[in-house]
Simulated assay, not measured.
Amino acid sequence: MLDDFIIRAALAALGTGIAAGFLGCFVVWRRLAYFGDATAHAAILGVALALAFGTSALTGVLGISLIMALLLSTLAGRQLGHDSILGVLAHTALALGLVIVSLLQGIRIDLSAWLFGEILAVGKSDLALIWSGTVLIAVLLIWRWQKLLTATLSPDLAYASNINPKREELILTLALALVVAVAIKVVGALLIGALLIIPASAARPWVRTPETMAAMAAGIGALSGVGGIYISAQANTPAGPTIICVAAGIFMITLLTRNLTRLKTL
């Protein structure tokens, strides 16, 4: 019989894996891998500010992620590229968050839990938050799918179709911020980017349509989450890193299988 905390951890990993798999496709298509890492690093500042002002960590993370998105949108293209702006914002936010945490009086915080995740400590309220975020992201993608996809594939085509690419980019950024906020307790700020990129990258060589890739990436994300929790419980390894290792293993298997299939057809 599985313990309740293992079941909660598995459900949390399942929800997070699905949400990250869906959004990870847009991260891969738009080549926003570094944005996922930058938002995750900035999440530490959000957590620190939330502790300082006595609000929820979700509020702090979402607020900082939104500010980062607006700053990126404003500053990018003005002498510096996206990667440079993201590098400055991400590391500045991370450093500032660590400084604020050190200045907080009477508050003890385990930074390793935020950096690498603490999924085995997920409670019922955390589980409700994670699945609420997953459902919200699924509904958002269903609602905006065609517009997001058009804006991703061709901004010029989006303009011709009366779609504002900047607006769709902002919507996608907010969705990524939500994933970071709900996933930070599962895999931690340092590993969220991997959970966004690896399932989508593993699915990409095997599919022919964006919809199929999104579904397969969500499935790989879910399998990585549940499989990582199982292996973690059996081997007594850190849950968050184990989830990422499982995802990486699936990626290597799909890559090798795809290459072998190509060799056989030659």
Rank of each mutant, 00 (worst) to 15 (best):
A9I: 13
G15T: 11
G17A: 01
A19Q: 08
A20P: 08
A20R: 11
F22D: 03
F22V: 15
G24W: 04
V28K: 11
R31G: 09
F35S: 14
A38M: 03
T39I: 15
G46Q: 03
V47Q: 01
A48H: 00
L49T: 04
A50Q: 06
A52L: 10
S56T: 15
A57Y: 05
L58W: 03
L58V: 03
I64L: 12
L66A: 15
I67P: 14
L70G: 13
L75D: 10
G77I: 02
R78M: 04
H82Q: 12
G87L: 06
V88S: 01
H91Q: 14
L96H: 01
V99T: 02
S102Y: 08
L104T: 07
Q105T: 12
I107G: 00
I109D: 05
D110P: 05
D110E: 15
A113P: 01
I119G: 10
A121M: 10
V122A: 15
A128N: 02
L129M: 13
I130Q: 04
V135H: 01
A138W: 09
R144W: 06
A151L: 07
L153G: 04
L153M: 14
P155E: 08
Y159W: 08
Y159Q: 13
N164L: 12
N164Q: 07
P165I: 09
P165Q: 04
K166I: 05
R167C: 01
E169K: 13
E169Q: 15
E169A: 15
A175F: 05
A175W: 07
L178I: 14
L178M: 14
V187L: 00
G188Q: 08
L190E: 05
I192K: 02
I192H: 00
A194K: 10
A194P: 02
L195E: 11
A202E: 01
A203G: 07
R204A: 08
W206S: 12
V207N: 09
R208I: 12
E211L: 13
A218L: 06
A218F: 10
G219S: 08
G219V: 02
I220L: 11
A222W: 09
L223M: 08
L223D: 02
L223I: 15
G227K: 11
I229P: 00
Q234N: 03
Q234R: 11
T237R: 05
T237Y: 05
G240E: 02
G240I: 00
P241I: 02
A247Q: 12
I250P: 14
M252Y: 05
M252S: 13
I253F: 09
L255Y: 09
L255Q: 14
N259R: 13
R262T: 12
L266C: 01
